[in-house]
């Protein structure tokens, strides 16, 4: 207490000065409307700046949570988008008795290789999230690969940058089916085979997934035609394609689970047995 009083006595002049200053400012604002509004304006400016800083800081620290939220939201939107794209194959997808077998699950890419001839990825969800092998993996703007093996919390994905994988595709305009595979060098450059000679298309046409496999639904845009030549000997086109998104750069992916896969496989088995 003694110390406080001592400090008060020691600093009595500044204290008195600021006290009287406060009184004068009060007096000023009481007497002059102009000064009052002006002071309020400055006060507003200062509080605005402070709140701005606070807002920016808290936003920065919330980024991770926001990211997760956005990923979840994106998952929902992507599911709807896939449904709408696949209307040609699943006309009842939006109807009341809807049947759209594909469900999405979001995941982060942990490891992504692209330098080998047979590349693979690792994502951070596994059996505990309901992931099984042979599920399709897509990204924001195209196909990433197919799940190869699953552990409890992680899964490895065969990247489409793998010369063993062939993806069933369609030319969007002519609906002609083909199969696409990597050429082995540039992660964007792909080749499409097995497109029959009698369809017509031109450079720049969009390539979409074909919907003829149980991995991917119909209608995910993949890339565009860069160049093509007709191979008159076997009656098929040989097409050079370019992807929209570099699969070696993806960070977030969505795993597609096909509820009807078992059913389809069983039918195929029957077919083979006969």
């Amino acid at each position: 207490m003694q110390r406080i009083i001592n400090a008060l006595i020691q600093y009595r002049n500044p204290i008195l000065y600021f006290f009287l200053m406060g009184c004068s400012i009060l007096f000023l604002t009481k007497k002059s409307k102009y000064h009052k509004t002006q002071l309020e304006e400055y006060g507003m400016y200062v509080t605005k700046e402070l709140y701005d800083i606070n807002h920016k800081l808290s936003n920065y620290f919330k980024l991770k949570k926001k990211n997760e939220e956005l990923l979840k939201e994106n998952k929902k939107l992507r599911e709807l988008y896939l449904k709408s794209k696949s209307l040609a194959l699943y006309p009842n997808a939006f109807a009341k008795k809807k049947h759209f077998p594909f469900k999405l699950k979001e995941a982060n890419v942990i490891k992504n290789s692209f330098l080998n001839q047979r590349n693979n990825l690792i994502i951070d969800i596994g059996t505990s999230d309901g992931i099984k092998s042979d599920m399709g993996v897509i990204s924001r703007n195209g196909v990433v690969g197919i799940i190869n093996s699953v552990s409890k919390n992680y899964s490895s994905v065969i990247s489409i940058l793998n010369q063993d994988i062939k993806i069933n595709v369609r030319l969007k305009k002519s609906n002609a089916l083909g199969s696409m595979f990597w050429r082995g060098l540039n992660p964007l450059e792909f080749k499409i085979d097995d497109v029959v000679d009698n369809v017509s298309f031109k450079k720049g046409d969009t390539i979409i997934t074909g919907g003829m496999s149980s991995y991917f639904p119909y209608g995910i845009p993949l890339g565009e035609i860069v160049d093509f030549e007709s191979n008159s000997q076997n009656g098929y086109y040989s097409i050079d394609a370019r992807l929209f998104e570099d699969p070696s750069l993806v960070n977030y992916v969505y795993v597609l689970s096909n509820e009807d896969r078992e059913e389809i496989l069983k039918l195929q088995e029957n077919f083979q047995n006969e």
Partner: peptide, 23 residues
């Protein structure tokens, strides 16, 4: 300063300026 302000009807400018100068 306060008296000057009071008699010349000038808000509080004289008070603040004089007070600050005295400090």
């Amino acid at each position: 300063g306060f008296s000057t302000d009071f008699f010349s009807q000038s808000g509080g400018a004289h008070t603040i300026a004089t007070l600050t100068m005295s400090f």
